[in-house]
Amino acid sequence: MEYPQYDPQSEHLPLSDEELSTLDDMLGRLPNEDAMNIEALDGYLAGLLLSPQPLQTLAGATWLPPVWGGDGAGEGEHHPFVSGKQKKRVQLLVLRHLRAIAWQWQAKPELWEPIFSIAEQDEGEEDLVDAEVWALGFMAAVELAPAAWAALFADAQTGPLLAPIAQLGSEGDKLSDGERDELSRAVLDKVLQLWALRSST
């Protein structure tokens, strides 16, 4: 089965809110518990773009199927899509969102808004940000190349930048709402710092 490759020069028009909702809905309707929602997907794509392994060198068959929980290659598993058209539509939306993130980081990082959960509070109280699901998606990208990422987590410069993501992705359910909010708010700037470091090497 053939998969598209990531092309850094492809269309970078950001998905509209309606298209993001459509993609989230399409993934949510798949008969696979491991399919990502839009928050996890957003984090996963960010992790792929920051990976020490350049995404354009990675086969689409390696990184695309985890988005929808796999292609059902194992015994007793079933292909999650009802048609090739449905699968192609999901792939195109994923690739466009991926390319839009990369373009924003390169050209207008101040426009980048990661997709986090927001818990609205009572009037007069600040809303709580929750990037746990986003971080879980990011760590799924890390798992595709754990040896390559290990050096970044151990590095004195990049390790602290990755720390909030790693903590949210591994201990999110153990954190208080306040702790989760504090770590989540740190993610945006730290991801942009990681991208700046990657781009300068």
Rank of each mutant, 00 (worst) to 15 (best):
E132Y: 07
E126K: 13
D71P: 14
Q5L: 12
G84H: 06
I115F: 03
T57G: 12
E113R: 14
S16E: 05
D173T: 00
E77Q: 13
E75I: 02
Q53L: 14
K85Y: 03
V90S: 13
R198V: 13
M139Q: 12
K87T: 06
S176C: 00
A141V: 10
S199F: 01
W149C: 09
V187Y: 03
L27K: 05
P160D: 07
L48H: 08
Q121P: 04
M139W: 10
H79N: 15
P14F: 07
L162M: 05
A154F: 06
Q91H: 08
V191T: 12
Q91S: 15
I165Q: 00
D155G: 03
A156Q: 14
P31V: 06
L128P: 03
D34Y: 14
D189C: 02
W195Q: 08
S199V: 02
L20N: 13
A102T: 04
A154Q: 05
A135R: 03
D177A: 00
V129S: 03
E123L: 08
W134K: 04
P31K: 04
Q56R: 13
T201A: 14
F153R: 06
L144S: 01
A196R: 14
A107I: 11
E39R: 15
P31D: 05
W112M: 04
E132T: 14
L13S: 10
G178A: 01
L95W: 11
E171P: 00
E33N: 03
Q104F: 06
G172H: 00
L41Q: 08
P4H: 10
L30S: 06
V129I: 12
Q167E: 15
M36G: 11
V67H: 00
A46V: 14
G28I: 05
V133H: 13
L188M: 11
N37Y: 05
R29G: 02
V133W: 04
